[in-house]
Computed example of a mutant assay.
Amino acid sequence: MTPDGQPPEYRLLAELEAVFDRLVEQTDELVADWEASGASAWSFERETADAGWLRHCLLDVWYQDGQDGRATRSHVGLVAADERVMEAALRVNATKQAFAALIAEIRTEVPSLIPEIKAVLPFRHPALHDHLRGTGLARLHLKQCWRAIPLAEAPVARVRLAWYASGRSIKRLTVREAEQKLLALDNEAPHVRIQLRQLAGIPDGEPLAQMQTQAPLMRANLFYREPLEDGRTRRAMNIALPLFVPSPDGRLPDHNQPPPTPPATRTRARRRDERLEDTVFLPSLRVYRYR
């Protein structure tokens, strides 16, 4: 119980509602500030990059029918931003961090609240929810709520965009951890029993690797107009939302037009996963042995 006698879930939900309200309000303020500045923008997907486009990108926080909860939709673009707009974007990102921290606390303290949060929060803003009727987008996608707006820390001379389709997420596992994950599936299933026997046949101390192929994403290579204080002249970053670049004159830096779709095959040499065997060891977990 809280000091006022309320269950802790009431406090957490009230705090989350307040942070969500602040996130929506600050995002609206950011878009309004950018529109008032008259600065330029560019969209990878659309011919017109206006305030409506930017608001849609920044407030796209919904599940689509059939969407994998682990996947997020991308909105690639560039936004020229004066000092006022950059400050507004920083405020939005700070609120996103607060939202993510509260969700993490709720998952630990009261995980049963998560489905209610996804269903209830959208209705707090009718203007957000009006366009959802009949579209199957009535639930929040939490990851899309808290993902940060990409920001360049200094004026940029040019941006080069390219698909990155070779991403791998590799997590080391012990034999014991792999066994627990298999047992959490269905240890009566024949294919699970086969994998448990395979696991029992290797040394307990052998490290294993769980590998997840990541979805293609857009990477931006930024070339600064002047070296930063630490001497850097460039930076590479993944962008799933429009990239805000400081621009006192409202102009965009020089940029390229990447291909409309990612390459069908790997374009870079294998790195961290080159030490893994070619054949998966535990298919149900995507676990590999090291060579």
Rank of each mutant, 00 (worst) to 15 (best):
M218N: 03
R176T: 11
L199Y: 04
L285Y: 01
A200D: 11
R219Q: 15
T267D: 11
G205T: 10
P262Y: 03
V245P: 08
R271G: 14
E206M: 06
A240I: 15
Y288Q: 01
T279Y: 12
R232S: 13
T233E: 15
Q180R: 12
L185P: 01
R235I: 00
R266S: 14
Y164D: 14
A184E: 09
H255M: 07
R286W: 10
L182N: 01
Y164E: 13
L217G: 12
S166E: 09
R268P: 07
A178S: 12
A220T: 01
S166V: 10
D186N: 13
F244T: 00
R286A: 11
P227T: 03
P262R: 05
V287D: 08
P258I: 05
R232T: 00
R271T: 14
L199E: 00
Q180W: 12
M218P: 06
M218W: 12
R219A: 04
M211P: 02
V280W: 12
R286C: 08
L228Q: 15
D278C: 13
V280M: 10
A184G: 08
E179H: 15
P246S: 06
P260Q: 12
S284F: 12
L241E: 01
L196H: 01
E188T: 15
Q195R: 05
F244Y: 04
W163S: 02
T261D: 10
R235D: 12
Y288C: 04
L199V: 00
A269V: 07
L199R: 03
G250W: 11
I194H: 13
L252T: 02
T265Y: 11
R193F: 00
N187F: 03
R289F: 14
L228H: 02
D273N: 09
P283R: 15
A178C: 15
V280K: 07
P216Y: 08
R234K: 04
E229K: 09
F244S: 03
L282N: 03
A200R: 14
